[in-house]
Write a protein that binds this DNA or RNA. Structure first.
Ligand SMILES: [Mn+2]
Ligand SMILES: [Mn+2]
Ligand SMILES: [Zn+2]
Ligand SMILES: [Zn+2]
Lengths: 147, 147
DNA sequence: TCGCGTTCTGGACTTAGTCTAAATTCGTCA
DNA sequence: TGACGAATTTAGACTAAGTCCAGAACGCGA
């Protein structure tokens, strides 16, 4: 039941991004870098404390911000005032489930947005677009069993 | 310097939406229903208190929520954890200025999103889309003077 | 004018997040 | 190995956004 391999990978990942791999940072990285559910900071804190009960809130907030600066995470504010963290760095869209509040990823290619270039066109407009995404809201129903 | 005409309009608007027009609600409505800058609740509180210094925070929060239920406002969470209110009810997109945090409206027709129907298609997907918008982030530069 | 339901108020409370000063840990070098 | 300065972590105070509540005020119909 070795748990080291994953951690060794994480040590390398953190070093490559200029982050010293402390025990706390590794535990936080393990929680958040593979998360698929866009957790909030306090969710990360709760999960990390299951393994490392003494981590402080300040460390979790500091580390998440450091990971964002280091390019390991993105910070999102798309649903009901929550700030959540997303380890998926390539562009993609998000679907917010209005019942549960859950945030789901949609592949970039699932949607096509036309007209962004015109907005950014120098001399024509005031908008210098750095990035964009489609945010959809609705309900996620049980997927039909394939016939 | 009559100030009544606008207020009379607002009385009618509130009544038509099933909201009793009290003095506080009218003052809040005057602040937020014509706002073009997507104010947060505390911004609304500050503006209302300029005219009606005794309104309480609780009343502003309650009233904003009531206006949302009544279909007079929308609540948005698109930038840095803030919750803001938008009196523009028809579908449109939003541009977030990364320098100032300001939120600007973009007309619905400025962008075209393709592929949403496929996401919603029964039997094919798990997503029941109720609404969507494009959220763009970047910088707003001074508009060039027309040549 | 009275009575009663609605609205408003201040303040306590909660939650998310920041900040600080002290304690601990870590890397390095003698 | 031991010492030392830098980096990291910690607990707790603090702030900001938002909720909740019990009582006060209001407002409309009888
Ligand atoms: Mn943050
Ligand atoms: Mn709200
Ligand atoms: Zn995502
Ligand atoms: Zn808007």
């Amino acid at each position: 039941m070795a748990r080291e391999p994953a951690s060794l990978d994480l040590v390398r990942v953190l070093r490559e991004h200029g982050v010293q791999p402390s025990a706390q940072r590794l535990a936080i990285a393990e929680c958040v870098l593979a998360a698929v559910d866009h957790p909030a900071a306090d969710t990360v804190l709760a999960r990390v404390q299951e393994r490392l009960p003494l981590v402080s809130r300040a460390t979790v907030y500091n580390t998440l911000h450091r990971f964002v600066e280091a390019g390991l995470l993105r910070e999102l504010s798309i649903a009901e005032g929550r700030t959540v963290y997303d380890p998926k760095l390539d562009p993609h869209h998000h679907f917010v489930d209005l019942d549960s509040g859950a945030i789901h990823d949609l592949p970039w290619d699932a949607l096509e947005v036309r007209g962004v270039e015109q907005l950014s066109a120098e001399r024509l407009s005031a908008y210098d677009v750095r990035d964009y995404q489609v945010v959809l809201r609705g309900r996620r129903h049980a997927r039909r069993r394939a016939p």
